[in-house]
Design a protein around this nucleic acid. Sequence first.
DNA 1: CGATCTTACGGGATTCGTAAACATA
DNA 2: TATGTTTACGAATCCCGTAAGATCG
Lengths: 298, 298
Amino acid sequence: MKNSIQHIQAFLAVARTGSFTKAANELHLSPSALTVQVQQLEEWLGVALLDRSPRHVSITAAGMDARGPMEKLLLDLDNIVTGSRDLAALRRGVVTIAALPSVCAGALPPALRLFRERFAGIEVRLHDLVAHRIHAQVRSGEVDFGIGVRARLSHGLAFEPVLNDRLCAFVPLDHPLTRHTALTLAQLADQPIILTGRDSSVREQVDALFDDTRLSMLAGMEANYMSTVLALVRQGLGISILPESAADSLEGLKRITIDHPGVNREIGLISRSGQPLSPAAQRCFELLNDELSGAPQN
Amino acid sequence: MKNSIQHIQAFLAVARTGSFTKAANELHLSPSALTVQVQQLEEWLGVALLDRSPRHVSITAAGMDARGPMEKLLLDLDNIVTGSRDLAALRRGVVTIAALPSVCAGALPPALRLFRERFAGIEVRLHDLVAHRIHAQVRSGEVDFGIGVRARLSHGLAFEPVLNDRLCAFVPLDHPLTRHTALTLAQLADQPIILTGRDSSVREQVDALFDDTRLSMLAGMEANYMSTVLALVRQGLGISILPESAADSLEGLKRITIDHPGVNREIGLISRSGQPLSPAAQRCFELLNDELSGAPQN
DNA sequence: CGATCTTACGGGATTCGTAAACATA
DNA sequence: TATGTTTACGAATCCCGTAAGATCG
């Protein structure tokens, strides 16, 4: 049996109006077409749904029995359609994003707030992860897209730059280096440096910096969270090299530019190339692309 | 959107198999037909359900979202079809019958028992009513059909005779009339007669008998139930005129034929002419027609 | 290069609407 | 007789399948 929905609609219209003629008008169909539809439905179900007499059409017991479920069926179908269209119209949906901790703590929240205001029905889930795990989750589809660094981008992933962060030195206010407005790597190499964990992208970049210049760092401390690192710096336990946007507040700290080309950190949106995003994710992607580019560093 | 069900089946088959080709085989369709179906469904819903790549087909978030409800929809549809067919196949249903008390107490129960044995899923509801109410309920559709007398049959009702009952005299064993094997109305008119209620068909017929012959009955007693009437007769309070099949047991009674053409009671199945019966009612009607004709009086 | 999905197009089935026939009140 | 349903039939539409095209591994 093909086209069951139309057949059911035909029967329900006749059942509702009590007349083939009225139902035909309602459905913008000819009475004869309706007759055939209902006949085919009855043949399919193997049971008469309507008692026809030229003057009056009434519903049989079988018709009464099937009517309720049929109406529910059409309602359910309508709900499916409406639900899907809500998804498409961004009235509903879920976007899952993987982003670097520095981005999560910095430029992302205001942009997401804007997104939530515009698309109240869309849920946003945020995974704050270190760089290589962002790549992994984008690749596996665990998240819709990611926000990370261009470095070590495996192929199959597309990169759309949005922010130009760079590494800076963070030193306590009473530190001798605060006299300078820019530092060289050599100057930093003399200092005990407090770094983030070995799997963080910042750490990778810092390690690469010193490897390139064949300088070695003084043994320092290590912490996973940037806020922890900065707290240690504030206490005078050393200096740190972190993204420009890492500090919520510069109280008790001075941020000093580092004079070296390798300090630039190109941060962007990472998506699976050739893999279309869901409507909600697509829109979120676009909004973040605009917002993060427009209002970069804090 | 017409033909939604097929479109949904197409999508679900692809979602299940993960391949247009496999789904096409499963549905006995060409891959191209499937492609079009799914495309139309997506266009209708305004959202992509599948991510196509030549090597792999995967389901989008919207597709995941719609899949469950769609599967449920097809299940519900199937239940409607199955339910209707059960009705048609007499595995399920309700038959409502209005019948004279004499029939309810006599020939009907064995026939209904047979019906219940053959069609265990069909519920039978029995209204035991006096004759004119049987006609009314059949006419109004309150019952599927009735079992009553042909007399006073209003038009629009069809009558199918099944039993040939007749009125007999019931007298106590020690009564003088027990000497006779047949009685005339004149003989009965000498006796105090215990009758059923004024709205019963038996009463109407008895009244008509005496009216025709211009005889008048002796003042007797009256009771609604035939069993009550017979109990009164057994106690010697009078004689009675009741249908041949009225007595469960003839203990303490003698049943004597009445010699008059008007004592015949043609009992039959009463249905609305031109009004088709439900499958269950139709089958019950046929069975009762056979059974009651075959094995009439007790 | 092979497997798979998509597009293009011709043939066939289904469905629609008009008009006539039919059936009841 | 009048109204409303059904049947008959021609026309338009829709759908399917074959074949060619496109795309990724």
